[in-house]
Nucleic acid binder design. Structure first.
Lengths: 312, 312
DNA sequence: ACATGTTGCTGCCGTTTCGGCAACGGCTAT
DNA sequence: ATAGCCGTTGCCGAAACGGCAGCAACATGT
């Protein structure tokens, strides 16, 4: 099913690989063929699409515009294909997800497993990144669905849903704080804490609050892995901070305790956004998974709110 | 600038004309070329795209899916072109509008004239239709912007704005009703009225209200042209019904009077919707005009509300 | 400074695709 | 029955495409 001129596909490959010869390798064609198609495109557009650096190609402004068009075309082609396929009964395709680490512990694996149980022919690609990288990958068309902290998102993305979860302290069961219902930041800072590095968005949530306190915090551990921080906390090394999403199962059958943070009487919210490219209709199988994702996160938000009512 | 496979464009032309030979004439190519491209497409998709009736071709279900994809591609190509053009300063392109008749008297001509004064290279195509035909033309990609009565719109359209205007009676200055501030439907029906035919949406607005009244209305004139109805009213033939949008200028310097309808103490609203295709980013020049259109209609809605406050 | 590897680009040439012409069978309306 | 329009199909020249080998320009490593 190849109704689009090869120039489109070649351009797309060159943009992704950043090199004509590399694109040619991916496409299984001679590099000369790719080079010529790009030159032809540039002639028809009337303006160069790439800047030729000594080491590969970079998009020009016009090139970026064309890249957007090509992405729209190819993604809509995917959707068309899936529409035709679903007409003859069988769903098949790949859902590509970019998300932050908090989802990997239970939300995403649960959802994917349950979805695959019902739709065997749908496969998944997931990539864990930082929040801004998630949005960037989405913009570049490298993923279909993005889950990230709700920062300001670029205009070519659409925020499908926004769910807020309470940020909390995570400590081992034997920790002195573990008996409490909620904790304040000050109480936590009296103990060794496991801090997020600036590449994690938790850092940007907590840093302003910590800065307000005049205390000098205990000597702390810093890390950039939610997983690592959680495991450290479980071993009693200190107090970690994250949303309950990241410790769904572990908090039940093991030694972790989640304590919602209380900042001057009000909770500390961590806003999670679900994003897709704005100029695009998703294939049916992707749309279906997306809706399950939104439903599931909404459910967790609701459950959590019931467990830790904000007005406590 | 033709980077898409000819099959795409041929398919598009065949869909619009409903015939391979007619498409070939439009495209200035031999009909055999068109036929072959369609056959090739069908082979690649793996399923027929058209039903060959004795008199031309009709889309199959798969064909309609491909049609949607092709429309998305071609329209996004337009947008890309306009983006590139606007980069070198000069806007140029064609804004295609489908709207109902009420707009033709002053709103649309005013807007187009003023817009052309600022952007000479932008040309316009406008087609006047009934409300449901407007939405249909929009769905089929035959127009960029649609203005129609706000009915239920199909999911592939997006309602950009919704403005409500008061339905009113339009009478000649010498008409007995002309001295009033507002009128009720009953008062109007005491005189000869000029009714809309069912093809106009005004009919569907008024008919339920008229049916509630037990009176037998005066022998009436029926017409399907807003313009004709207005001119008839100006000649004192009877009472016409429409929104004030249709008589903007005429009510000022001529013999027409607009009287907001009062139905059991509350106004009768006529909802005007502005629509675009949902899966699409508009070219810059179209987007610009669209925003002016929304602003202008909002302005008229505001002005009218000030002139005839709903609570009177 | 030199060799080496990589980059994009360009003649040359065989292959594939495309489009125009003419003709065919099927169908409708007169 | 006849004329007209429909979509399709051989045939053939023209245009586009892709592969191969070689080019100059540049970066890197010794």
């Amino acid at each position: 099913m190849r109704f689009h001129s090869p120039a489109i596909q070649y351009f797309h490959a060159v943009r992704r690989t950043g090199s004509i010869r590399a694109a040619a390798r991916v496409l299984n064609v001679a590099s000369s063929a790719v080079s010529r198609q790009i030159l032809k495109l540039e002639q028809e557009v009337g303006s160069p699409l790439f800047e030729r650096n000594a080491r590969g190609l970079t998009l020009t402004t016009v090139g970026e515009m064309l890249a957007r068009h090509v992405m729209n075309v190819l993604q809509d082609l995917d959707r068309f294909r899936s529409d035709v396929a679903s007409l003859s009964g069988a769903w098949s395709g790949t859902v590509s997800i970019a998300c932050i680490e908090s989802l990997t512990e239970s939300v995403l694996p649960d959802l994917i497993a349950s979805h695959r149980g019902r739709a065997r022919r749908v496969s998944f690609t997931t990539e864990v990144k930082g929040s801004s990288d998630v949005l960037e990958a989405l913009s570049r068309g490298e993923a279909d669905i993005g889950i990230a902290m709700a920062l300001r998102h670029p205009p070519d993305l659409r925020q499908v849903a926004l769910k807020r979860f309470r940020l909390g302290a995570v400590v081992a069961r034997e920790h002195p704080l573990a008996r409490r219902k909620t904790v304040t930041l000050e109480q936590c800072l009296a103990f060794p804490v496991i801090n997020a590095l600036p590449e994690l968005s938790i850092y940007h949530l907590l840093q302003p609050l910590i800065a307000q306190l005049s205390e000098t915090p205990e000597p702390a551990i810093q890390a950039n892995s939610i997983d690592l921080m959680r495991e450290l906390a479980a071993r009693g090394v200190g107090v970690a901070f994250q949303t309950q999403l990241g410790i769904g199962r572990l908090s039940r059958d093991s030694q972790l305790v989640f304590l919602p943070l209380d900042n001057a009487g009000s909770p500390v919210w961590s806003d999670l956004g679900i994003y897709v490219r704005a100029e695009r209709t998703l294939p049916a199988y992707t749309e279906s998974f997306l809706q399950e994702l939104v439903r599931e996160l909404g459910e967790r938000e609701r459950r959590e709110n019931a467990a830790y009512p904000p007005t406590s």
